[in-house]
Nucleic acid binder design. Structure first.
Ligand SMILES: [Mn+2]
Ligand SMILES: [Mn+2]
Ligand SMILES: [Zn+2]
Ligand SMILES: [Zn+2]
Lengths: 135, 135
DNA sequence: TTACAATTGATAATTATTATTAGAAGGGGT
DNA sequence: ACCCCTTCTAATAATAATTATCAATTGTAA
């Protein structure tokens, strides 16, 4: 794998963001630095980079894929309202795949714990709207 | 919500299947009983039924939605190869959302544990192929 | 019955993603 | 520096899953 300038910028933007960006969000950011880049290049490189284990790919249920600068195993929570995704501090030792393995004859290779809820920003907005209604 | 004949058949087919069917799989089955039904009707009713809490909606990461005749809270495992989805016997008491709640100011409303692996059928096929290669 | 809202089938539109392809670039070996 | 080969890119087409639109139909209740 060559480290092309496109690839480098995509990687750097994702890492600097410290967020879980989707391909098109990243595209918007990268375009500011390299205006002629193609969306397909962003998709292609995110795929390549995640296959190489340099970044993580997050497949949150029923939503757009997001990419993670942080590759160590951890879990996530997403906001039902604004769809942002955050890391969550969940003790993965609580889950023992081996215990559950026999169940249906599956050979288990991994698992994800995915929390959902309303993020603090969205809750603030909600409260603001409710207060407005009362007046 | 009216219980139309379309809705009734869709519901019955899902429940009788005892599987986690996708909209188009269900469409194929329902067509055999009601050949003029539209795919959009299947999608529409699966949405309506799951909103009403009569069936479950399964949003497995990065894949097609699947619907569940069984609405009590439980978790799933899917096969990386053939994409089938099965229930898994995981003790949900092990996870305590309240414990994790404070983390980012989220108000947590639920969570899913999603295992992945290779199902027994796919493992058999894999083994068969390997044995074939040796010869 | 009439009146109205809910629902349907057909189809168009949308969203996210992957495939195709002709051309460009990188990097040895000479 | 030049050639060759492979990898990569931009632009665009294609695909897959789902949702939106809308005119026509149906169910229900006054
Ligand atoms: Mn993360
Ligand atoms: Mn289930
Ligand atoms: Zn939010
Ligand atoms: Zn399988």
């Amino acid at each position: 794998m060559r480290m092309t300038s496109q690839r480098e910028i995509i990687l750097k933007e994702l890492q600097d963001s410290h967020q879980h960006l989707s391909a098109d969000e990243l595209y918007e950011r990268v375009k500011k630095i390299m205006p002629r880049i193609s969306l397909a290049t962003v998709y292609r490189n995110l795929e390549t980079l995640s296959e190489a284990g340099i970044i993580g790919k997050l497949e949150i249920s029923g939503r757009q894929k997001r990419f993670d600068f942080d590759i160590h195993p951890h879990d996530h929570i997403y906001c039902l309202q604004c769809h942002r995704v955050d890391n969550i501090d969940f003790d993965r030792n609580l889950v023992n795949p081996a215990e559950v393995a026999s169940d249906k004859g599956y050979q288990i290779t991994g698992y994800r714990v995915e929390f959902k809820g309303i993020c603090s920003a969205c809750r603030r907005n909600q409260k603001k709207r409710e207060d407005g209604d009362k007046k």
